[in-house]
Design a binder for these strands. Structure first.
Lengths: 215, 215
DNA sequence: ACACTTATGTAATAATGTTACCGATTTTTT
DNA sequence: AAAAAATCGGTAACATTATTACATAAGTGT
């Protein structure tokens, strides 16, 4: 898997020592998934923790009525703090994760992770760093829900999406945006229409083209 | 400090081994604060991590306009995951913490914590356990903001408060509730009035008495 | 060509947020 | 003790967001 080795080094060589990189190469399991595929379900045991080599994973919460809500993304070179924590404590997953685009992940078994926690300071640092980053991401998310107006949140969300996909043309429906922001499709349509009138974007069926300052 | 020793054992003896309890007693610093006092400010470095012996600490986020928003409580026998993570990574605090009632805390220096992480499995377990619990608490909080109606959220919040204080008579203003839930005082007054008409509580100046099913 | 599904637009109504103002009570100052 | 200032809660008017229902348009499969 020469490709994956290259991707591993590209994404993680600045934070891990060579020996750990070699061990990761040897022991982690490479996993490829197409956009949209479920990577982890709510309630499922966490036997392995992910490291993203390519693409991004979407981490969501699903409520009792089946509505989803976007918590954060795990991007290239990152890990998932909730997986680390739940894996170590043998706690079932409180979140659902899906592939945002076509994704390549390394899975590290929880036992392996334990070993590396003791053996490699850089791994321990990576895990703790991920914890801090993710706590702060979630807090910022709460900031947004609690304090920001919806039109700002939509704009920020579209810009995020555009950064992750690397394109200003997003393939997404109004319903999907509403789900990810935990609100209603009608509200999203209304506000997108307003943004279109303000020449900030163009609307097509299942597509949104970001213009000017939003790009 | 015989009292604090008793409190320490009462709160933590079921999760820590005797030797660790002895070390905590010897090395942690006891800190008492009256209700309302600030324990940690946003942006402040985290040099020590807290363990609550008596009372509860309120953990909030403050936005750019100075509005606060309640993230979670740290109660007797618990630690603070964000403090653990930020302490270890030398990251400044993303949250503000205040005493919810009169509180007694033990402060453990970050260096001490590092030592215990390696030396005592029960300490490591405590830290990781706290991480999981707090992640899930924050996710549940997001569930509430994103999915629940305000009247439910108010009722749940009042019940939480009543459990923490151990009384069905709460000393609190409408403004405080609004702050904690990240909403507006007028809205809270309106909904509390409705709950009073439904005979679920009684309103007084700076006091709310929970009735019947809410108790 | 047809039914079927999905995506978006529109309108009416409900819930929540915002601003402004009032009177009542408590606290502080004089 | 009287006056002034600050805090608390009630009310109204209006803005924003949520919910429900329905219409129209665009894609899908037979």
């Amino acid at each position: 898997m020469q490709n994956d080795t290259t991707a591993l080094h590209e994404a993680y060589s600045s934070i891990f020592e060579p020996e750990l990189l070699r061990e990761i190469e040897e022991k982690a399991i490479v996993f490829n998934a197409p956009a949209g595929q479920t990577l982890m379900n709510m309630g499922q045991p966490v036997n392995a923790v992910p490291m993203v080599l390519k693409g991004a994973a979407k981490v969501c919460r699903i409520n009792d009525d089946g509505q989803e809500f976007l918590l954060y993304y795990v991007k290239k070179g990152e890990g998932c703090a909730i997986a680390f924590a739940c894996g170590m404590m043998e706690h079932e997953s409180p979140i659902k994760s899906t592939a945002e685009d076509d994704i390549t992940i390394l899975f590290v078994s929880v036992n392996q992770m334990y070993e590396w926690m003791a053996k490699y300071p850089s791994w321990k640092k990576f895990v703790m760093d991920t914890m801090v980053t993710e706590f702060i991401d979630m807090i910022k998310n709460i900031d947004n829900i609690a304090f920001k107006k919806l039109d700002d949140r939509i704009v920020n969300h579209l810009i995020d999406k555009s950064k992750i996909s690397g394109s200003s043309l997003l393939n997404i429906s109004h319903q999907q945006i509403a789900d990810e922001l935990g609100t209603n499709r009608v509200v999203i349509s209304r506000l997108l229409k307003k943004l279109e009138k303000e020449k900030k974007l163009l609307l097509f069926r299942n597509q949104i083209k970001l213009l000017n300052e939003l790009k």
